[in-house]
Design a protein around this nucleic acid. Structure first.
Lengths: 240, 240
DNA sequence: CGAAGGATTGATCACGATCAATCGCGGTGG
DNA sequence: CCACCGCGATTGATCGTGATCAATCCTTCG
């Protein structure tokens, strides 16, 4: 079910050219010196993953780091009895492997087709050790992720189903806005089950709640996503 | 109800002496060069907080960072309708202010009497900028916090009340072990309401679940904490 | 056109929340 | 010294949100 990733056919024998990177301006690699970028470029490997493929295995040695360049990935933990918790979705520009533990406590899987830039850990850390700006960027990314994680704890610990879904959609919309999109359409490339496992709900509750948001004129459900009809109402419901 | 913090009466006009710091070996300040430690020492301020006092205000500018040296603090978000979520408890050696946002999205309050080492943010960042080892330590701390936060998401999203409490107690015990204690007593300096707000439960559910853990011979409830009777059972129940 | 799989809708159930009473301990004053 | 008070914790009774079980619906793809 999970095909092995293969080197992208797009050029340079699998080595990425950072200067051409589509997430150059928004990722950890942004604001790096020319020399740092060149150093990274040398050890970077451009990989493609098909939908559902494991990018990182749960409880396996974390020997590599990734920078998502295209597509969406999910970061999740599967309990022994099959319960899943998705702790976050990774979008282009997001960094995978910020936690420094020797074993990866979480798996990362491609939601749809994903392209990612891979760095072997030992080599990456060697570069980090000698490039303080890169460390600073990594730290900022980790601090940001930490804030997101803490916010999501509030959602999971204290919000109702409707508040959770409203918050999720509002967050995705804000993120899309920040990425420069002007419309109010929120693409949902992940399955309902993924949304449920992210929000600590069941697929049925997500479905019902989505229907209720649509019935109240807050959103309109379309193929592949939702359109935010009343941002005001959505944010009121999210109630953080 | 929350008295203003006052400078500790213990010496040097409120300036801490890092070399004498009780958390020197376990905190962010550990493994720093002599020069870095001296630089930090100059801007450090030793503060006392009484039980319940606000160390950091929610939604206020984050103008300072803290290193907890004695006591326990809670990091929490209060929703407009009064619902609370405690995203973590801070023990001696823990760093407060890792998230780099200009406004603190969370409040920090003293659970009992707390002593903390305060750093004015601007000055702290100036030191960080010129001391790469300190940045590295901060990054490690942030990465560790991130992992803890993600683990707790799994707890809040997918665990039952019994699993949550068992996990909480097992985590506290492990932490205490790591700090060098050999016994199986787990102090619980925080109120039941705090535990409930950390685990996304009500105080009644915490109480009932605690009683059930005691009835099954997993723990014994004592004043100020619990004694772990069967670690095996506790960890089985925690079921991560 | 038919099969397959994800999404939605419906009926019922259960876990934890809510409402409420009591307990137990520590502090205070008579 | 003990009666009383206050407050946090525990226990009990009932309720409600979201889970579970189950039946279509809808879209995609062969």
């Amino acid at each position: 079910m999970t095909g092995a990733p293969h080197v992208a056919a797009c050029g340079h024998a699998g080595h990425a050219v950072c200067a051409d990177c589509p997430v150059r301006s928004i990722s950890v690699c942004a604001a790096l010196e020319e020399s740092e970028l060149r150093a990274l470029s040398i050890i970077a490997q451009d990989l493609d993953f098909e939908a559902g493929a494991e990018i990182v295995q749960q409880d396996e040695p974390a020997i590599a780091l990734f920078n998502i360049t295209e597509g969406v990935a999910r970061l999740l933990r599967v309990l022994s009895d099959g319960r899943r918790q998705i702790v976050g979705f990774l979008y282009p520009g997001d960094f995978l492997g910020l936690s420094l533990a020797p074993l990866s406590a979480f798996a990362a899987q491609a939601v749809g087709p994903v392209r990612a830039c891979r760095f072997e850990r030992r080599r990456f850390e060697a570069i980090v050790a000698s490039h303080p700006k890169l460390l600073k960027r990594l730290h900022e990314a980790a601090a940001h992720e930490l804030t997101l994680a803490q916010e999501h704890m509030v959602v999971l610990g204290r919000q109702t189903a409707e508040e959770r879904l409203a918050h999720f959609l509002a967050t995705l919309r804000a993120r899309r806005r920040a990425a420069g999109f002007e419309d109010d359409f929120v693409p949902l490339p992940m399955a309902r089950q993924d949304i449920a496992d992210h929000l600590g709900l069941t697929i049925e509750t997500v479905s019902r709640t989505m229907t209720r948001l649509a019935a109240s004129g807050t959103v309109r459900v379309a193929r592949g996503g939702v359109e935010v009809v009343s941002l005001r109402r959505l944010e009121d419901l999210a109630a953080l």
